[in-house]
Simulated scan of single mutants.
Amino acid sequence: MTAAGLGLNKFCYAGLIAAHKNKTPITDDTATKIIELVEQFKGWSSVKGSRDNAENFMMGISEEELYNTPTAEYVHRRSGFLHRKLTVYHVTFYACADLRNVEVMETLLEMVRRDNKTLDVFILMQVMRCYLHSGDIERAHKIFEEYMKSGKQAMVELYVTLAEGAMVGYTPKGMQLALETLENMTSRDFFLSPKMGNDLLLVAAGEKTGGYTMANYARDLMQARKIIPSPPSVEAYYNGLKKRKHRSQDFQFSLMLPYPQSGDLSGKSLSLNMSE
């Protein structure tokens, strides 16, 4: 019986691919099975197209949100950020980035090009992540630069993807690129969302050596936008500061934390004494 006969849609294939990606331990044939599922989906999609559920849209819920795909938080973006017909490719490229499998990712790129499909911004983000997580900063940076020079609308997510991924391994070159990327982003009047700011601060705070410049800059950007840092990012940043002996022992670290809306604590700042 064919996949179409079984009633599998693109979200079923996306779920199967995600299941293979999340399976532990990762086996030698994981990548092969993922590619096979993409090929099966291509055969299915040529027989039967996928239609969005009208009832879900009436409720204000997209199928991406309903099935909790990696694209769920971006589904309402416009300007070519997300081509919803590429759902299976979205999940597969996302899996490749998490698995750090450049070979499969590049195979997928060839498949997309052979099918004359246009890469959207989400897929470009995953291609960059895959290279960055594999330590290939140059190729990820090249993709970023080519997009920025293409005349297409610049996206803050691309800046954040490059900055966050460049910090993998905390190499001097990567940390410098991350800092320059955020400075360039700021100069173009792009701003971090609370999630972006917290994600960047949490990663930057993991730097064990160096001047902690990236973490301080991420914190400053958040403070400038009055973004309340999450407890994990505050703790990570604070612990990183404590380990730096050259800082003043009486350094006071003040950040606004989300206290419960009751009593006299609401909205007050937390001061962490660095003399501990």
Rank of each mutant, 00 (worst) to 15 (best):
E157H: 01
A204F: 00
L109H: 12
T161C: 09
F93T: 05
G135K: 00
K226E: 14
E36Y: 11
L8W: 12
E106V: 12
T24F: 12
G211I: 02
P260C: 01
S50M: 07
K242V: 09
N116I: 03
L16C: 10
H76T: 03
L6S: 09
K142A: 14
E235V: 04
T161H: 03
L108I: 08
H246A: 11
E39D: 14
K33Y: 08
G240F: 02
K42F: 13
P172F: 06
R100P: 05
A14N: 03
L200R: 03
R247S: 05
P260S: 02
Q252C: 13
A54G: 09
E73S: 11
E39G: 07
Q261L: 10
Y147S: 05
G267I: 02
T213I: 08
P258L: 01
A236T: 00
T32P: 08
C96R: 06
A204Y: 00
M59N: 15
Q126W: 07
Q40E: 14
Y94Q: 07
T87K: 10
L37W: 04
S269N: 14
I35L: 15
K23P: 06
Y217E: 06
T186M: 10
D250H: 15
T87C: 13
P260M: 03
F251Y: 13
E180R: 05
M111E: 10
L265R: 13
M214C: 15
L257I: 14
A215V: 04
A205I: 01
G263V: 06
A204M: 03
F144R: 06
V168F: 05
R139P: 00
C96I: 00
T213V: 10
R188V: 01
T118Q: 12
P258W: 00
A54D: 11
L272D: 09
L200E: 02
L109Q: 15
M167I: 08
S230N: 11
E235Y: 02
R188C: 05
K243Y: 09
P232K: 06
R244E: 07
G267V: 05
R84L: 10
V91T: 08
K242G: 07
T92S: 15
M214E: 12
L179E: 14
N239T: 03
Y89I: 07
V156L: 06
V168K: 10
M111W: 06
M167V: 06
Y89M: 08
N9D: 15
L270Y: 09
T213Q: 15
Y13G: 14
I228W: 04
T32G: 13
A97D: 05
S254I: 15
M274F: 14
T71S: 06
Y74Q: 04
R113N: 12
G211T: 08
P70L: 06
H133G: 13
K117C: 12
A215D: 04
F93L: 04
T186F: 05
N184F: 04
V38E: 14
T30A: 10
L109N: 13
F11L: 03
H246S: 09
P258T: 03
Y131V: 01
L16H: 04
G169F: 05
A3H: 12
K48F: 07
S271L: 14
H246Y: 07
G151P: 00
M105P: 00
E207K: 00
N68D: 13
